[in-house]
Write a protein that binds this DNA or RNA. Structure first.
Ligand code: SF4
Ligand code: SF4
Lengths: 147, 147
DNA sequence: GTAAAATTGGACAGAAAAAGTCTCATTTCT
DNA sequence: AGAAATGAGACTTTTTCTGTCCAATTTTAC
């Protein structure tokens, strides 16, 4: 019952892009270094983010990644689900047919509620919010290695 | 980001016990059959539930499991966490030292909020609630095989 | 007391998912 | 054309989950 590492990396990556000037292009290596992500792993994650329409990938010598939507329009939920798929918490929430009790199961209904609530919380936070909240002091604790 | 099978089984097991008369003793085999749980797997789950003080295990010929607390006093959260451990969603929520950014990370704070909210939802439901909500119609859809 | 019937506790194996690595192909800039 | 970057997917390793097995223990029944 937890976020995968890939999901966490995706959030870091998008947050990093959201902190730059709009439409800034940042190389994969730079992001990997600053966000502590294995570069090749980041490549796979970026491909999924691109497929989801969140970032754009530029190839070539001066290539890299670019956020193609305004940070205010990208929610935490969206980035996470682009990587780990839709959050459902318990199988029966998304595939009721796997348990014949589901139509009348009170537990099932609780899971549906819990899932909705969790998605609501994550969906209510945009990357603009995150950047604004961090800008005050993150400078003191960069993710990049001290030296 | 989902409940493990063991967690789901634990909930079924406790719910089954909660449906019986108070202090009823039900054999492992009966629970395994009716709740569709591999019997030996159930044994391990029951051990954890017993350690958590939720059920009591009786050995011997007429042995089995018994709920030792009133259904109203057992929450869904408690049973789940007895099996899968405390819910934290993202590593840094429970072990901030794993990410040096945590003291100033806005994302971290969202995860803390999301975790609290999820635990609140699951913690607000007791097995008494679940039994009451189900009793109206579950009879038509027993978990046990049709024949 | 002994046998039968049930569970215990831990070891163990198989399966599945996650995490990370590697390589060759492709693209772009110079 | 060559250098420098990413693309795409195969591959390996690690971790977690799921389930099984068996000797030991406990209780009941005779
Ligand atoms: S018993 Fe209820 S909560 Fe469990 S899998 Fe079936 S429908 Fe879902
Ligand atoms: S970057 Fe923030 S959310 Fe991600 S692990 Fe670090 S503290 Fe947690």
């Amino acid at each position: 019952m937890r976020l995968t590492r890939a999901g966490e990396y995706a959030v870091r990556c998008v947050l990093h892009l959201a902190k730059q000037e709009p439409d800034a292009l940042v190389s994969r290596q730079t992001i990997a270094d600053q966000c502590r992500i294995p570069p090749h792993f980041l490549a796979k994650i970026a491909q999924q983010l691109a497929k989801a329409g969140i970032i754009e990938i530029m190839q070539g010598t001066r290539g890299g990644y670019r956020l193609i939507r305004r940070p205010a329009e990208v929610s935490l939920l969206e980035v996470i689900e682009a990587i780990i798929g839709e959050i459902f918490l318990n199988d029966c929430v998304i595939r009721p047919e796997t348990c014949q009790a589901s139509p009348d199961c009170a537990v099932h209904r609780v899971w549906v509620r819990a899932r909705d609530e969790l998605r609501r919380v994550l969906g209510s936070v945009s990357f603009e919010d995150l950047v604004r909240e961090e800008s005050c002091c993150l400078v003191r604790f960069p993710l990049s290695p001290p030296a």
